[in-house]
């Protein structure tokens, strides 16, 4: 008789809830990776998530652990408040590009400056999803959105912001890397980075952020696969993947 073993199943840190995300949206993939890491590290029971405003505003419905919902952009401040009074809990924010890189720029930068011992999962899909496809701080030059109908003109609308590079210049940052979710190999690399970012917190090593290039098929008006191809072809060239800051003690971590 052939015995079959389970090589992959839905993580326990997930609730049995269908997400509200559009088909093919990589928010689900990013959520899943976080849940897998929490499972593997055995820290679900002490995890406290901080949800953003944006498409992932209901992230707390999908994770089987404590969660709070922040105001737009303020997740790093809220996470700071929680972590400072509950240092033994694992506190992480999950934020989109509008949340983290536009309205919440001050909060994320200062959390990094303080070397706040939190983990930040940053979803960069170059667009505002929840409000219906407006220009994000990370929208590529020339990219058409509902609020840059003629394409993003950098002369008047500014340039896309590279957060991993920016945060890597800050002394308080221990770990800032960019990964992508556009194909299986990169999904696996993303998970490793997420794991490391949580390990950084567990060992009290300070501020860790993983930027994940993600797809928004609905607002980019692509099929799910086309949206991933856009990430792999267009976004990766503007937002190069890589390790922008890995503090020596983080580098020494065996993950």
């Amino acid at each position: 008789m052939i015995e079959m073993e389970v090589v992959y199943s839905r993580p326990e840190s997930f609730t049995p809830t269908t997400t509200h995300y559009c088909p093919g949206c990589t928010h689900g993939t990013a959520h899943r990776l976080v849940a897998e890491v929490l499972d593997e590290m055995g820290i679900r029971e002490k995890a406290i998530g901080v949800a953003p405003v944006g498409c992932s505003v209901f992230a707390y419905d999908y994770f089987n652990h404590d969660f709070v919902e922040a105001a737009h952009g303020r997740a790093p401040a809220m996470a700071t408040g929680i972590k400072r009074v509950r240092p033994n809990n694992t506190v992480y924010t999950y934020q989109g590009d509008g949340d983290l890189a536009s309205i919440g720029m001050a909060e994320i930068v200062h959390a990094a400056i303080r070397g706040e011992n939190i983990t930040v999962i940053f979803i960069n899909n170059a667009i505002y999803g929840m409000t219906g496809g407006q220009m994000a701080p990370t929208t590529l030059p020339g990219m058409r959105t509902t609020s840059s109908p003629g394409g993003r003109d950098v002369e008047t609308m500014g340039y896309p912001v590279r957060m991993s590079e920016m945060l890597s210049t800050i002394d308080g940052t221990s770990y800032a890397v960019r990964r992508s979710l556009h194909n299986p190999a990169n999904v696996r690399k993303s998970k490793k980075a997420i794991r490391r970012a949580f390990e950084v917190q567990e060992r009290g090593m300070g501020f860790a952020m993983v930027e994940l290039l993600s797809s928004c098929p609905t607002n980019l008006k692509f099929t799910p696969q086309q949206a991933l191809d856009f990430v792999g072809d267009q976004m990766v060239s503007y937002y190069p993947l890589g390790d922008y800051k890995v503090a020596p003690e983080v580098k020494a971590l065996k993950v």
Binding site: E3, M4, V7, Y8, S9, R10, T19, Y21, T29, R32
Partner: peptide, 23 residues
Amino acid sequence: TGCAICAVVCPDAAITVYRESRK
């Protein structure tokens, strides 16, 4: 082959993957 790549890319954690035991 039970390689689980489908599960790796699934945004909805909808897939359970089984493979013949190596034991």
